[in-house]
Design a protein around this nucleic acid. Structure first.
Lengths: 201, 201
DNA sequence: GCAAGATCTGACCATCCGGTCAAAACCCAT
DNA sequence: ATGGGTTTTGACCGGATGGTCAGATCTTGC
């Protein structure tokens, strides 16, 4: 089964990945079982393994897809745009990603937390390269005096940390806030203030 | 074995917890095995279970200890001190915690990521209460015009997110920064700037 | 409507893992 | 040194889990 071709193959592959995302993001790789994924996908376990050669392969497929989604908002940061607006836009898009794809965020977090055993090369390659490229853009803006002088890489880290926190620590955030709060709306306002103050030259 | 009493009991219990922290923080609860912990502690598996009744019990002991360490720096924030200095002090202490106890940070992160199945009540109780108390202090400082008006709870979240990021995503941070960097020193400087700008009234 | 291929399944296997237990080894006060 | 309690261990158990396989069932192009 190199590449899905028939309609059934496409549909079932997607169903499996969807169910697997649920299970992997909730329990980690080791904590997830094929039976749980099969249950979630409404398929039998041997049928899962008809579409994917192994548990590992399902996980790998999810991680590969994930990284693209993850880096896109940063890629969109335009070197020719208005510096503050561009950074603010990135913050906003990244927060939306946390809000709309919390399972992906958690899957990624679990992987990195455990030392990125199945993502090392992607991080060393694409991710590092993209950050280096965008750090250069940020540094340029700083030299022009259009945003405050800061360590550009740590600036990016701060955006990652602050936005992913709301997806990854969702339980804690909601518990501490209590009832009657919209975490993401509040986070959006808070981060807006934070970065406006931080970036002002 | 209700409470360790003899010297051997104390020594072995500590050795086990130390090894268990290594393994749990690296692989999560489900990913950790008693054999790995036993290996790390230099004891046989049945001998582990002479000191702790179950894998679960070892994990629980670690989590309970952890929460204390974790909340202490926030507890130390003094309502009668200088507002900016107090918040900056908390940021610094929390970052030191990430630097000096990264395994504890990851253990905590994994637990929350997975929905805090074994920490719910602690989060709903002690943690939420402490944050509420300190949020009140922060709000008071804001009303006095001594620090900027912000959502105090999200301010605390931001401190957690930014400091824990360096422990939890250590692999990513080091990979992206490349050789010749001291992540925590740089983070200290960056966060100093960030919070000085954010808190200025 | 009928092969030929694609899809699906029940039964099964080997391994891993948390945990038990009886007995051995060890420690120490008398 | 000896006896009673403490500590340690090899052997083992039962259930879970990733994965296999032979064959049954369904789809589809003709």
């Amino acid at each position: 089964m190199p590449r899905p071709k028939t309609r059934i193959q496409i549909r079932n592959s997607e169903t499996i990945l969807e169910a697997a995302l649920d299970v992997f993001s909730a329990h980690g790789f080791r904590g997830a079982t094929l039976d749980q994924i099969a249950e979630g996908a409404g398929l039998s376990k041997p049928n899962l393994l008809y579409y994917f050669p192994s548990k590992e392969a399902i996980h790998q497929t999810l991680l590969t897809r994930l990284l693209e989604t993850w880096l896109d908002p940063l890629r969109e940061m335009d070197p020719n745009g208005d510096p503050v607006a561009e950074v603010m836009g990135y913050v906003r898009r990244k927060l939306e990603l946390s809000r709309d794809y919390p399972r992906e965020s958690r899957l990624f977090a679990i992987e990195i937390l455990q030392g990125a055993p199945r993502m090392r090369e992607a991080i060393e390659g694409d991710l590092t390269a993209l950050v280096a490229e965008k750090a250069k853009v940020l540094r340029h803006w700083m030299e022009e005096g259009r945003i405050a002088r800061l360590d550009p890489v740590h600036l990016v880290f701060s955006i990652w940390a602050l936005t992913q926190h709301y997806a990854d620590f969702d339980v804690q955030v909601r518990t501490v806030l209590g009832e009657g709060h919209d975490p993401y709306a509040e986070a959006g306002a808070f981060l807006e203030t934070l970065y406006m103050r931080l970036l002002a030259p």
